[in-house]
Design a protein around this nucleic acid. Structure first.
Lengths: 224, 224
DNA sequence: CTATAGTGACTGACTGGTCAGTCATGCAAG
DNA sequence: CTTGCATGACTGACCAGTCAGTCACTATAG
């Protein structure tokens, strides 16, 4: 396992272009893996980790249970892949919006809030957060990944946005400007509310978004 | 089996004072039930519903598995009892603080925020919210209970507090005052952050509390 | 007061069912 | 023919819920 035998004459070079043989059913290795992850995404989001059966994921992906284990060593690993797959697209969207150094910070924030409500809170993507909260305790690596991929990156962007606005005199300095994470709070509230009470007492997201923007901008703007 | 013989002369009257026999081990029925709920509380909070074994709850409560089923018809019912038990104390604490019609609303809010951070966000009680979020989907009754017991009640109190402050001219009217739920957002953010990222990147709750108060009060206060 | 029958709280081995992960076999592509 | 992907029946572990039996205590009889 440690050293290769020296006689490796006809051994394929390490950088062999991977035959990439088509699978039995005519699709590529990547297609199948994606199908499995997609099926897992649906089911994990819908039912959580424990209640989702590997067999079910396999059937929804159109493969047999054993096939799942050709692509992922365990249910845990499949779960990680699923979360990664569902988080990554989010990041790019938001990062694009936030990077606009010349616009007033209040415009940038408004735009980001609107995007978050429309693209996350109001869609099934919010379920990702349920997974993170629910399973984060049992999968510390999951929490760590999410922290690195989303929280740390988003926090840094937010921090610099606000710091610049303070310097420019657009925002008031103070405890809130020092801890700009708090301004995302109302969006999280809307998200969690929707997750838990959607059926019982659905939130009017437009109103909440307006209230959020109103509260935050008045809370941090330098007094006129 | 169906009817008693008519001669039941010395039958005890229906209103007999219930001997209230002590249980085999010398403690009362209520003691044992409480012990089981307490054990369940620990374990459900720590591991979630699916990962907690009834046998484990029983052992921690110092009884046999079968005994649990003498007190609760199913694991689900035990779970409900556990959540109810852990939520009820919270409500009273906060409700007391909030009811102070003569104080300025900003003082009342500050007091409530401080209490929430100290009594919930900074303690194991925050785990209750993880349960609600994680299992709310699979137990709609749980979400409904929490909504009635906590959200609806708290929301009503908050709404009237803010409405009065607006009338008095202390708070500015506007979208935020119309949807005062949003002002609780940062506390929820702190709570969820702590739940998920405690180990990785712990939050300085004092700073966040200060930022929260700063943001919210400046966000809703009528301009001087 | 002692002996005996009655009560019901408590126990834990057992059952039936579920499910993650394995592996002998089949089969299509090269 | 050979290679290695794909299959799904199978295994072993696990666990919610059950129930026949035990035992501490109570009530009544002698």
């Amino acid at each position: 396992m440690s050293t290769r035998p020296a006689l490796a004459s006809s051994a394929p070079p390490a950088d062999a272009p991977r035959p990439s043989r088509r699978s039995r059913h005519g699709d590529t290795r990547e297609d199948r893996e994606a199908a499995i992850v997609d099926a897992g995404l649906d089911l994990f989001l819908e039912k959580g980790f424990a209640a989702t059966k590997v067999d079910e994921v396999a059937r929804r992906a159109g493969v047999a249970k054993g096939t799942v284990y050709l692509y992922f060593p365990s249910k845990d690993d499949l779960f990680h892949a699923v979360v990664r797959r569902s988080v990554e697209p989010l990041i790019d969207v938001v990062e694009d919006l936030a990077h606009d150094p010349d616009a007033p910070a209040s415009d940038v924030l408004t735009r980001v809030f609107k995007a978050l409500y429309a693209e996350v809170v109001a869609t099934d993507r919010r379920e990702v957060l349920r997974l993170i909260i629910a399973e984060g305790g049992r999968f510390p690596k999951l929490a760590a990944y999410y922290h690195t991929a989303v929280v740390r990156r988003g926090g840094a962007a937010l921090r610099s946005l606000v710091a610049e606005a303070v310097e420019r005199g657009e925002f008031r300095d103070g405890p809130a400007a020092q801890r700009p994470e708090v301004i995302m709070g109302p969006a999280l509230l809307a998200l969690v509310w929707t997750l838990v009470f959607q059926e019982i007492d659905p939130l009017d997201l437009d109103e909440i978004l307006a209230a959020h923007i109103d509260l935050v901008l008045n809370g941090v703007k330098a007094s006129a």
